[in-house]
């Protein structure tokens, strides 16, 4: 019961934040009704997907401070579970999605147990390794289509809500938006929960945390599982949205890093961080790619700029955009106090 109350408790944010958040939410709700290009719709869907990825990552990477660069493997488990179940046994999305989530979370416990004996860089690189191992397996596994991947056949009667197939993108958009809102509320409760507090204490100082009765190893594994669940759900959705999945696409290292980047760029360990990160990175990547790549023939320049921005943020404000905003607000408050 308290968890539900916590989910809706935003009282620790300043009023300004809440107004902005409300405005953004209103915009997200009416966006499909506004005039927009199909490219814009694609970007909005990507934005919601990456927000969800980033929110999930934020539990382990932001609150617990464990830089996990292997989330793509769980995206793959989610996506492949849905694809395999649909193609081979004709199972609807709403069944395969929880199954994929359960499989991913199960795998995350197996991986997480040894993984969290590592710290810092060693941990980060090991997460990459685990994800690449699984990808290599999927690339030769015939049951899941090996390197060619899988294709979900188009259904006869559209829109099909059971199998998540639609002609118009706004169906996908609203389903994703619903997932986004559920995810946001869940994370708000998570942030207020005992585990949320304990993770932040672990990030602060593991020895102190242990002296306060916190089993740091187990807490990290739990947070890792939560992050995994988010990523796996988006993976399942991705399979339906794209029809076509292959290991290089759904389990690549680039995806793993992009997932981490959302929260890191926006501000790891804050509720809004991943959303801000996705709102900046997704359009930036897509539009830059579109303008510089397709139009000007400068393939790669978009990623040079993108990499440059990442470097700049890392060097100037490692707490991300949200860190900059908070620092600026604090300075304003400071000035007022002095005046």
């Amino acid at each position: 019961m308290e968890a539900v109350r916590n989910a809706f408790d935003f009282s620790d944010f300043p009023r300004l934040d809440l107004w902005v958040a409300g405005g953004v939410l209103a915009f997200l709700l009416v966006f499909p009704a506004l005039p927009h290009s199909s490219f814009a719709m694609t970007i909005m869907i990507q934005f919601l997907m990456f927000s969800l990825y980033g929110m999930g990552w934020n539990t382990i990477g932001g609150y617990a401070g464990q830089v996990d660069l292997g989330k793509a493997q769980y995206n793959g488990i989610g996506a492949y579970t849905t694809a395999v179940m649909m193609v081979r046994w004709d199972v609807p999305f709403w069944v395969s999605m929880p199954v994929g989530m359960a499989l991913a979370v199960g795998w995350s416990f197996i991986i997480g147990y040894p993984l969290f004996r590592l710290k810092g860089h060693y941990f980060a690189i090991a997460t990459i390794a685990t994800s690449l191992i699984l990808k290599d397996v999927f690339e030769v596994w015939d049951f899941v289509g090996a390197a060619k991947g899988m294709e979900i056949p188009i259904r006869k009667n559209l829109p099909d809500f059971l199998y998540l197939q639609f002609k118009q993108d706004y169906y996908y958009y609203y389903i994703l938006l619903a997932l986004f809102l559920v995810g946001l509320l869940y994370l708000n409760a998570f942030r207020h929960s005992r585990l949320g507090f304990q993770l932040r204490a672990i990030k602060d100082n593991e020895d102190v945390a242990r002296s306060l009765g916190i089993d740091a190893h187990w807490c990290k594994i739990k947070a890792y599982a939560v992050a995994t669940a988010f990523v796996a759900v988006v993976g399942s959705f991705h399979a339906c949205y794209n029809f076509n999945i292959e290991p290089e696409d759904v389990m690549s290292l680039d995806l793993s890093i992009l997932i981490a980047m959302m929260a890191l760029l926006g501000g790891a360990g804050s509720l809004w961080g991943p959303i801000i990160g996705a709102a900046i990175l997704v359009p930036l990547k897509s539009y830059l790619g579109d303008w510089l790549g397709a139009s000007a023939g400068l393939v790669g320049l978009n990623l040079v700029i993108y990499g440059g921005i990442i470097m700049l943020i890392a060097a100037v404000q490692p707490r991300g955009v949200w860190g900059m905003v908070e620092a600026a607000l604090a300075r304003r408050r400071g000035d007022h106090g002095a005046a």
């Binding site: 005992r194 507090f197 304990q198 204490a201 990030k203 100082n205 306060l212 009765g213």
Partner: peptide
């Protein structure tokens, strides 16, 4: 070490959460 992003009251809450 006084670092991290927990406020004082939140710090003490971590103890109470045991």
């Amino acid at each position: 070490q006084a670092s991290g992003d927990l406020k004082v009251a939140e710090n003490v809450m971590v103890g109470a959460f045991m």
